[in-house]
Design a protein around this nucleic acid. Sequence first.
DNA 1: GCAGTATGTCAAGCATACTTGGCACATTGG
DNA 2: CCAATGTGCCAAGTATGCTTGACATACTGC
Lengths: 72, 72
Amino acid sequence: MLNHVRALRKKHGMTQAALAEAMGVSRNTINSIEVGRYVPSLPLALCLARFFGKPVEEVFDDQHEQSSSHNL
Amino acid sequence: MLNHVRALRKKHGMTQAALAEAMGVSRNTINSIEVGRYVPSLPLALCLARFFGKPVEEVFDDQHEQSSSHNL
DNA sequence: GCAGTATGTCAAGCATACTTGGCACATTGG
DNA sequence: CCAATGTGCCAAGTATGCTTGACATACTGC
C-alpha cells in the first residue's frame, strides 16, 4: 500500500508529531504509516485525506502496491 | 461509521455472499460491515468503493457517525 | 412438509492497527 | 560542546478486522 502522507505533510510544513496530534493519534502511528510499516485504518485514512484536502484514493494507492501478495 | 454498502450491493443485484466473493473476503465480513458491527480496513474499503464506482468518501461517512465516541 | 436461499449472529483464533515509553542518530543553533 | 528537534525503530500490551464453522430465522417454491 503506497501512500503520499509524507509528501503531503511536508507540503503543509508539519512534523510527524504535529500531524499526529492533528489526527489524534501517536507520532509512532504517523511514522509507521509513512515508512510503510502498516496501512492505516479507514477512519484514520479518511481523517488524513480530509486534512490534506484530497480524496482517499489520491493519498493511498491500493492498486500498485508492492507489498506481499495477499491483501486485507 | 455509516456506510452505503447494503444499498450499493442491492443496486448491483448481489447477495452478501456474492459481494464477499468479489471482494475476496468472507460473507461474515460483508454482513458485519453492513450491519455496522465494525468498520472495514482501508484496503477493503478501497476495494468496495472501486467495485461500486464511487469514491471512498461516498461509500463511508466518517463525519456523522453515530457510534461510540472515540475513533481510530 | 421440505429443500434451498438469503440474512443475522455467535465463538474462538489469528493478524494487524494503535498505544506508551524508550533508545538511537543526525542536524541545527546556542 | 551541548541542548533541542525531527526522525526511525523496538517491545509489550490492547483493540479490532477478518477467518472458519456453526446455528437460527424467514422466505420461496416444489
